[in-house]
């Protein structure tokens, strides 16, 4: 009888320490580059909601709230020993990468993640939709479009433009791209490009978009030649872009949480960086009507925001 009781006690002890150990091991540390940034905070909020639903524990560290962030973060990591560190923003990722290079890490909201040092223990959700996603959606909203034109700088965007061309080819869309070295070349390049295309695509190229004047030139030329402009961000809607497609930020937070849980349990290969799964679509109906552009009316239920002429 005593042996049976001893065994029961032993099982209870093992169960207790086992669960305590598990709770410790699945703790996630969230490092936010700047809590005041709405985008970052929305991502963090959605991330925590999913963790909570799955009974995960977490701790938080906001870089903007600490005078000596590096030392304090290091101390917190030693103290909490998280199974995974979730970095929101490039600053958070760079710091964590220096302070705890051997920890499992997951990033999101990092600008140009391909320039980050992504190792085997690193996972991520990209900040931008892939060009293939954008092209698929663009084709859905404007089924008649066959030729897209874009300007880019070879040093900054060559690889991206090559990917766009490859993805476009697979979608049966023709891309006409023109490299420029500085903004002085924009006007001439547009004059040559616009007559040959159905729509102009503004990509996130720092040379093409280096100042307000270059953006104004693009929209002015497009308007003169009655060509629609599609943009990667809704900030260009106000200037006259007919459509913008970007990543949905709340989905990035939820997607990151799912990936974090899978990574923590080693159910996804190290180095996995996913494209965002949710899109945010803004349609400029005013520009659409002015250009008499054919838009897929059945796609209206997939548009997040429609902007009219009085907005």
């Amino acid at each position: 009888m005593k042996i049976i009781n001893f065994c029961k006690a032993l099982i209870l002890l093992v169960a207790f320490f086992g669960s305590a150990g598990f709770a410790q091991s699945n703790k996630v540390l969230i490092v936010n580059s700047e809590k005041a940034v709405y985008r970052y905070e929305t991502i963090a909020t959605e991330f925590k909601k999913v963790l909570q639903q799955n009974a995960y524990q977490w701790a938080e560290f906001n870089l903007d709230g600490h005078a000596n962030a590096e030392a304090e973060l290091k101390q917190l990591i030693e103290q909490e020993n998280p199974a995974l560190i979730y970095c929101i923003g490039t600053q958070a990722y760079s710091l964590v990468h220096n302070v705890a290079p051997n920890k499992k890490m997951l990033f999101s909201a990092a600008i140009n993640w391909r320039r980050l040092d992504v190792g085997a223990g690193t996972y991520g959700v990209a900040n931008e939709l892939s060009s293939a996603q954008e092209l698929s959606l663009l084709r859905y909203f404007f089924p008649t479009i066959k030729t897209i034109g874009l300007l880019y700088n070879d040093s900054f965007s060559r690889e991206y433009v090559e990917t766009i061309k490859k993805d476009a080819l697979a979608s049966g869309i023709n891309i006409i791209n023109k490299p420029i070295n500085d903004t002085q070349e924009i006007s001439g390049a547009l004059n040559e490009l616009l007559p040959k295309i159905d729509i102009f695509w503004i990509i996130s190229d720092p040379v093409v978009l280096s100042n307000k004047e270059s953006v104004r030139q693009i929209f002015q030329a497009a308007q003169q030649q009655k060509k629609p402009v599609y943009a990667y961000s809704d900030v260009y809607i106000e200037q006259g872009a007919v459509l913008s497609i970007s990543a949905d930020i709340a989905t990035i937070g939820r997607q990151s949480a799912g990936l974090a849980m899978m990574a923590e349990q080693d159910k996804v290969p190290g180095g996995t960086v996913q494209s965002p799964a949710g899109s945010m679509v803004t349609l400029n109906k005013c520009a659409l009507d002015a250009l008499k552009l054919k838009f897929n009316q059945d796609a209206l239920d997939s548009v997040n925001k429609i902007v009219g002429c009085d907005q």
Binding site: L137, Y140, T251, Q255, D301, S302
Partner: peptide, 8 residues
């Protein structure tokens, strides 16, 4: 994974 719309 909850996404905004069917196409996503």
């Amino acid at each position: 994974l909850i996404v905004p719309k069917d196409i996503d």
